[in-house]
Amino acid sequence: MTEAQTPGADARQRLGFLPVAETAALARYGVLIPDPGSVLVSPGVQLEEGVVLWPGVILQALDGGTIVIGAGTQLFPGSRLVASGGLIKVGTRAEIGEEGGFTLKAEAGNVIEIGEGARLLGGGSLTLSNRIGRGAQVLGPIRCQNCTLGDGGTYRDPEPDQRGGVLKGSGVARQINVPTGSVIQAFGLFSDGTLRRQSYFHPKSGG
């Protein structure tokens, strides 16, 4: 069966995505795609070496939008990045979409920036403009709009109060600013949540 005869090939073309063969050919640039037939990538999406696209990932750039994914970043099943005239820029070694996928959508005039080693999981979303700093995390089904999470170490850093900013829980976060080493846990409106140091949730044992 030729590429043109493959089920869904015409739909891919009409929706502006690469054919399966061209998606698989991204491997020549060091991109890891275990199942190219289940992944949708728009032409012009910039993927650096070591990016992993697990099954069910969608990277869609349209209306002049731009998507850039840094080296070593993993996009887990259910991750959907849509740059509809806007810019989505993901740094190196980020983790997006584990435990339920994640959606990033940047329309015209909006910029979504994800820092090195950041982690987004649990079925949440980023819309409008957001800056998720180096090592920062969004944990849970949280709708983030115009949020800023400060730079810091990753969740593996032994010093909790030096890690990137964190939002955890579920609900809506609008214009929330979480500095380095801090966290807001909420279930509803994050504007009603309490800003705490991360050591509150991860106290060190011993003296």
Rank of each mutant, 00 (worst) to 15 (best):
E3C: 06
A4S: 08
A4F: 11
Q5D: 09
G8W: 12
A9S: 14
R14Q: 05
G16Y: 02
P19H: 03
T23P: 08
A24P: 03
R28S: 11
Y29P: 00
I33F: 07
G37P: 06
L40S: 07
S42D: 15
V45Q: 02
V45R: 01
Q46R: 15
Q46M: 08
L47E: 08
E48D: 13
P55F: 03
I58S: 07
L59R: 13
Q60G: 00
Q60V: 02
A61I: 00
D63P: 00
G65H: 01
T66D: 04
T66P: 00
V68I: 04
V68Q: 08
I69E: 13
I69D: 08
I69Q: 07
G70D: 01
A71K: 03
A71G: 04
T73W: 05
L75M: 09
F76A: 14
F76R: 14
A83L: 04
G85Y: 06
G85M: 10
R93I: 01
R93N: 15
A94I: 10
G100A: 04
F102D: 15
L104R: 14
A106W: 06
A106L: 05
G109K: 04
I112S: 02
E113Q: 13
I114T: 07
I114H: 06
G115S: 09
R119D: 09
L121N: 12
G122F: 00
T127C: 04
N130I: 08
G133L: 06
P141E: 15
I142V: 13
C144R: 14
N146T: 14
T148E: 13
L149D: 02
G152E: 01
G152S: 02
G153S: 03
D157V: 03
P158D: 14
P158H: 07
P160H: 05
P160E: 06
P160W: 06
P160K: 03
P160M: 02
G165H: 09
K168S: 13
G169E: 10
G169N: 04
G169I: 12
S170M: 15
A173H: 07
Q175W: 01
I176K: 00
N177K: 04
N177Q: 09
F187M: 12
G188M: 12
G193H: 06
T194W: 10
S199W: 02
Y200K: 11
P203M: 05
P203G: 10
K204E: 12
